[in-house]
């Protein structure tokens, strides 16, 4: 069982590596073969992966920081975060992207990435906060507090290792959200002007053509591999908690 799991995790890493390599080397290879612009799928992969990476990094960092501050900080932080989560959950991302584009015209998928980073970041903060509150009542944290650990040290040394798994739990959905929102915006006439996977799907849908399989397969592989990888990291941190 353990061996088969390792194989699945290895396949997940390999699949993601293939998608990343396609994104990085697709266009140069197409030029070498004398078909520049032929592999729009590879260009789309680059844009989509870059946006996904931004969403993942920003939302994890933001979620951990805000969730930690809400759990360990003053009740005001907690209340502010609660209101922010409610508000971000009530405004459709589509409208938020349009508002952001009206305020600051960002290139490509950047506006989508920023909005999704905030929305996912606040959702992650909510999860991190509840995990952190649970950890805060554990014996080892109480012992550390009794020994005079400061709040920042408590978070850094004792809480963060246990909540970081929860912070990356939403990773697989980041890629799907980026593509889904991009496709919806392009289909509704608010294209970001690039050749991202979402744009490729939406443009085919607008032309009444068959949905191109390249982006669909790309999204499926990316989501599945991120799912396997985040699951593996979550397990790793969960094992750490078992030692506690």
């Amino acid at each position: 069982m353990r061996g088969s799991r390792r194989i699945v995790i290895g396949v997940g890493h390999a699949a993601l590596a293939i998608v990343v390599m396609t994104a990085l080397l697709g266009s140069p290879i197409a030029q070498l073969l004398g078909h520049p612009g032929r592999f729009s799928f590879a260009d789309g992969a680059r844009e989509t992966l870059a946006a996904t990476l931004l969403v993942l990094a920003a939302s994890s960092a933001m979620g951990t920081a805000l969730g930690g501050a809400a759990a360990l900080g003053s009740p005001l932080w907690d209340a502010l975060l609660a209101r922010a989560v409610e508000l971000s959950g009530a405004i459709p991302s589509l409208v938020s992207v349009l508002v952001l584009r009206a305020i600051a015209p960002l290139p490509g998928l950047a506006s989508i990435a920023v909005v999704l980073a905030v929305v996912h970041g606040l959702a992650t903060a909510k999860i991190v906060r509840s995990e952190a509150l649970q950890i805060m009542s554990a014996d080892f944290v109480l012992a550390a507090r009794a020994l005079g650990s400061s709040r920042s040290r408590l978070f850094r040394k004792h809480v963060f290792p246990h909540v970081s798994g929860a912070a990356i739990a939403g990773a697989p959905f980041a890629a799907a959200s980026v593509v889904g929102l991009d496709a919806a915006l392009t289909f509704l006439g608010f294209s970001s002007g690039g050749t991202s996977w979402g744009a490729l799907i939406a443009e085919a849908a607008q032309r009444s053509a068959m949905v191109p399989m390249g982006p669909v397969v790309g999204v499926t592989i990316t989501v599945a591999s991120l799912y396997v990888i985040s699951d593996a990291y979550e397990d790793r941190f969960r094992i750490g908690r078992r030692h506690v």
């Binding site: 799907a176 593509v179 889904g180 496709a183 919806a184 392009t186 289909f187 979402g198 799907i201 939406a202 849908a205 009444s208 949905v211 982006p215 669909v216 397969v217 999204v219 499926t220 989501v223 599945a224």
Partner: peptide, 15 residues
């Protein structure tokens, strides 16, 4: 389910 969700709402609705 993964394949259908990868189609996104745009792909599903237009199909």
């Amino acid at each position: 389910i993964s394949a259908v969700s990868a189609f996104t709402i745009v792909g599903v609705a237009t199909t």
